[in-house]
Design a protein around this nucleic acid. Structure first.
Length: 728
DNA sequence: ACGCCAGAAGTTTTT
DNA sequence: CTTCTGGCGT
């Protein structure tokens, strides 16, 4: 027996390089693995988890936290393949939070059946909160308020604290909405995504007994993508390792791309200060990409100032040159990619080897159309989209209401879908009754008899309440069965069948939902409806990506993190798109934002194993208007040597001298000052109100004659200075 | 109560 | 170019 285990341990270390081996065999105490792109990090983590389970720990004592469910599943498969039991806990921070809060709900002061609200639901609640706070939704966009709330929660700031820190009317109003938002969630027994982390972190802080017992249960903690953890996740990981300090963080500061949602790159940069006894291992040998790809990626990332120097090297061959392609517009871009893919396929490549990355989801459309036209199979990494479909949300609303009758958002969706003749007036009356009695809408519906003025609708509301009670009898059955019965008994199925003469896709989708429930049940035979709903709420976009499906993969640059493909196409290498900036808010794009964009570009480039194509268009549609673009500064960083530059649009390059779009400061820049008169081709005459010379760019703000303001990066603004005497 | 139409509004990235 | 909203008509 001992002999066998020893052989296994040998096997776990056998084909690793020296730093990898150090990381895998380090068992006790804090460990930081700074793993450059393609340096075999996944291999190290899985081996290390298995190594722990073969030497110092029981599998159930190892907790591994990954960034996505997909990563968790793959890791689990690999560990099982290494011959280690299935008892290891491998999940995302959010899933861990959901699980702990579900088990220890009474300590966390939550109902056992709490619902997890998705972005859509969260926004609806925010909207209600804004209204109840007496603010106008015209001035206070739910999306903006929501993102402020979310940001605060990511920093573990409660609504109360937010209120205490509010200095002006604007912040006090925001605090008001925040407080109401949280109250509404509580009333409905609902948590948002941020709460899953926040409440878990809070629980571990206040309940020392629980913290201790969890810490000793999970004696070894592994956290992947540590550079993308936020404050709440940081607290959770520290609470779980306070005494044994067996924390292994892996990540790469150069791949930190979630700062906008509260991720703090400082967590990984200051790991050694948090754990002075930390062992630090650097993985710098890249096994993934060709030398040329690596060199190109390095040239891009090297421009970041706030950075720990790191040298990635490889023994791989040089490979073909990186290609930079200029297209006329998005259609040409898409057509060219389709053509390249066709050719690659003819040459024997598998479609699964090819991927297209873009900065924003909206950019997938043109590519999809071109691939469709060419008859090329593709998959878009947008797993959550399926669950955002109307017909799917309709079914889920019933299920959520079954689990949690206090979920008013779910009731409002289900009560008149399919149409039962319960309209706005009746719902208004139910609402009023619910608010007066301080009860959820579902209870109000059950007491419809005592709702004043309900009239003819009484019978209909009663029928709905009866339906829910009938379904409630089934709620303990396996998910698949409940889904099916809900579809049948609610009348949704009949409705979709009727519609199917026009479009069958909604019907197909709900059937797909039944399959999804069945699959889940097969994976976890003991799973309840609650488990399945939780699972569906925590799905992420990449989770739907399957390798080996024989299809080209389309995804955002954020979604591609952690993956690799032999051939990569990156599109939209244009200022404003990559790096992304919101138009008219040039003054908001800070150095930090710009560096994060550069890291995003770096992440995309380092996914490529053999061929990397970076494409930019001279024109791109923006809100239905064809807009002139400027090549991304990231392409300039690549230089000209050793790069294949392809120009598909035969026309003269627009970047010649004299063009206002050349991305250079105007020749007479020294004459520009605040107060200068300038002319813009479409906006007319204006006056410079701000001129700020940054490290790399000059920002300018202009106030026009019509009273409007506009901010630009001067290099890219189509402005010319006008002398006073010209104007008179 | 519900469907249709016109007008406005809005687009990062995600658990 | 879409997607959502709100108002109006049936």
């Amino acid at each position: 027996m001992i002999g066998r285990v020893n052989r296994d341990i040998e096997g776990l270390l056998a084909d690793l390089n020296s730093p990898q081996r150090t990381a895998v065999s380090h068992t006790e105490g804090p460990l930081l693995v700074l793993a450059g792109a393609g340096s075999g990090k996944t291999r190290v983590i899985t081996r290390r988890a298995a190594y722990l389970a073969c030497t110092v720990a029981k599998p159930s004592e190892v907790l591994a936290i990954t960034f996505t469910n997909k990563a968790a599943n793959e890791m689990r498969q690999r560990i099982i393949a290494l011959g280690v039991g299935r008892e290891m806990t491998i999940c995302t921070f959010h899933a861990l939070g959901a699980r702990l809060l579900r088990i220890y709900h009474d300590r966390a002061d939550l109902p056992a059946n709490f619902t997890i609200y998705d972005t859509d639901d969260q926004r609806k609640v925010v909207k209600e909160a804004i209204e109840q706070a007496g603010l106008a939704t015209t001035n206070w966009s739910p999306a903006a308020v929501h993102s402020t709330i979310s940001r605060a929660k990511n920093y573990m700031q409660t609504a109360r604290e937010f209120e205490e820190n509010a200095t002006d009317w604007f912040q006090r109003s925001m605090a008001k909405a925040f407080l109401i938002y949280d109250r509404l969630l509580t009333e409905r027994g609902a948590l948002d995504f941020d709460d899953l982390l926040l409440k878990t972190a809070h629980l571990l802080r206040i309940d020392e007994g629980l913290r201790r017992s969890l810490e000793s249960k999970y004696r070894y903690l592994l956290i992947d993508e540590y550079q993308d953890t936020n404050e709440a996740q940081y607290v959770i990981s520290h609470m779980l390792t306070r005494e044994h300090a067996n924390i292994c963080a892996t990540g790469d500061p150069d791949q930190s791309i979630y700062g906008w949602r509260g991720a703090d790159i400082g967590n990984i940069l200051h790991f050694e200060e948090d754990y002075p006894s930390a062992k630090v291992v650097r993985l710098e040998q890249n096994y993934r990409s060709t030398r040329r790809i690596l060199a190109a990626a390095d040239r891009v990332i090297a421009a970041n100032i706030h950075r720990k120097e790191k040298t990635l090297w490889t023994e791989n061959d040089e490979g073909p040159r990186v290609r930079v392609v200029e297209c006329e517009d998005a259609n040409e871009e898409a057509a060219w990619i389709a053509e390249q893919i066709e050719r690659a396929a003819r040459d024997g490549a598998s479609l699964a080897d090819l991927a297209v990355f873009y900065r924003i989801n909206a950019m997938s459309r043109a590519i999809e159309e071109a691939l469709l036209r060419a008859g090329i199979a593709y998959q878009v990494a947008r797993g959550t989209e399926f669950y955002n479909r109307k017909e799917i949300k309709d079914v889920l609303a019933y299920l959520r209401l079954l689990i949690n009758p206090a979920d008013d958002i779910a009731l409002l969706r289900a009560i008149n879908t399919p149409a039962r003749g319960i309209g706005a007036t009746t719902i208004g009356r139910l609402r009023h009754h619910a608010v007066t009695a301080g009860i959820p809408l579902m209870n109000a519906a059950k007491q419809a008899d005592s709702v004043p003025g309900i009239g003819r609708a009484l019978a209909r509301v009663r029928a709905f309440a009866a339906l829910m009670e009938e379904l409630d009898q089934l709620a303990g059955q396996p998910p698949r069965f409940v889904v099916e019965q809900t579809l049948r008994r609610s009348g949704l199925y009949a409705e979709l069948n009727k519609e199917a003469e026009v479009t069958s896709s909604p019907l197909d989708n709900v059937n797909e939902l039944i399959n999804a429930a069945a699959d889940f049940q097969r994976e976890r035979p003991e799973a309840t409806l609650i488990d399945w709903l939780e699972h569906t709420s925590l799905l992420s976009d990449v989770d739907s990506v399957e390798s080996g499906r024989g299809a080209v993969t389309l995804m955002t640059l954020h979604a591609c993190k952690g993956l690799e493909f032999p051939v990569v196409f990156m599109i939209g290498l244009e200022e404003g798109t990559l790096p992304f900036s919101r138009s008219g808010e040039a003054n908001r794009s800070s150095i930090e934002d710009e560096e994060e964009e550069r890291r995003l570009c770096f992440v995309g480039m380092t996914r490529a194993k053999r061929e990397l194509n970076m494409i930019h268009c001279r024109y791109r549609m923006f809100r239905g208007v064809e807009t002139r673009t400027v090549r991304s500064d990231f392409l300039r960083a690549l230089g000209d040597d050793d790069i294949d530059r392809v120009n598909l649009s035969g026309e003269p390059s627009p970047h010649r001298k004299g063009s206002p779009f050349r991305g250079q400061l105007p020749d007479d820049i020294e004459l520009w000052e605040v107060g200068s008169l300038v002319r813009h081709p479409s906006r007319g005459l204006g006056r410079v109100t701000l001129l700020r010379r940054g490290l790399k760019r000059t920002h300018v703000r202009v106030s026009f004659q019509d009273g409007t303001d506009q901010a630009w990066v001067l290099e890219f603004a189509d402005l010319t200075r006008v002398d006073y005497d010209e104007v008179e």
